[in-house]
Design a binder for these strands. Structure first.
Lengths: 145, 145
DNA sequence: TATTGTTATACTCTATAACTATA
DNA sequence: TATAGTTATAGAGTATAACAATA
């Protein structure tokens, strides 16, 4: 086992810790999501699409922080699986609508989310727990202030 | 501008916020690092290597959370740039040692790190600030408990 | 027999540029 | 003329499997 002063130094850098924590979290979450045949980014799209049946691809991307050029690669497999459908709003835009199958899948995913988020929060010592969401929320808007 | 309830819901999920915050942070940090011709993962390697001149490739990977199979792709460009050198310890292992040029580059990077981390922390409201590092530190060890 | 370094490969997420067709 | 959707492409990080050389 290695016990270098370097790790101590790295462990003091919020940016480094943020990166590592996110990496660990995503690996675990992706594993839990795998049985539902959903990747994290696909679930994000499904999640947002499920909140409003009038959202276009660009709308969803804007909400989820996904560039619209990356949306087709997420939407196409979801459509092929029959989880969403594209409903034309005019000759150019389409609403992304969850099918019944998509709703069911999202409901299943919500269970995974709920349990995972609870486990995640439980990992944080109680005295720091309530500070996590507001701190991350501030960081996520870094540079948009 | 879109103001959906979906964003509210997403914004309540610590896992989602963690992912977004890390993504925003890494984009900004990578931008600040670009003038030094270093990627984030390369700097991490340089940072760890600079803390101990007896560390092997595997050691550095272990400390930095990088699989050893991914180390050559990081070390080779650093060696080609003359920032590190491989010094054989035995017929199999090599110590990863910073060259003078590597030390200089790391020192330059440390300035960027210091300023960036300060800016990052300043983004977090004061009442939550001191909770960020311990919370992230706990999350980073998620699943290793 | 186990470990180190390496190669090959693939997947996920993210990014930019440019095209098309429509508004 | 500007916008929505798309295509193509690339980069960065991370993962597994397997191999040769060495411990």
């Amino acid at each position: 086992m290695i016990e270098p002063k370097a790790d101590v130094a790295l462990a003091e850098l919020p940016g480094y810790l943020l990166r590592r924590a996110a990496s660990v979290m995503m690996t675990e979450f992706a594993t839990r999501l795998a049985p539902l045949d959903l990747r994290i980014s696909e679930l994000t799209v499904l999640f947002v699409a499920g909140s409003d049946d009038q959202l276009t691809s660009s709308d969803i991307g804007q909400v989820a922080g996904i560039k619209r050029a990356n949306m087709p690669k997420l939407l196409d497999p979801l459509e092929q699986q029959g989880l969403i459908r594209r409903e034309p709003l005019d000759g150019r835009r389409s609403a992304i609508i969850l099918t019944d199958k998509g709703q069911t899948r999202l409901n299943e995913a919500r269970k995974v989310i709920t349990e995972f988020e609870a486990d995640l929060l439980a990992t944080v010592p109680a005295r720091h727990r309530n500070h996590l969401v507001p701190a991350l929320d501030a960081l996520r808007n870094y540079g948009k202030g």
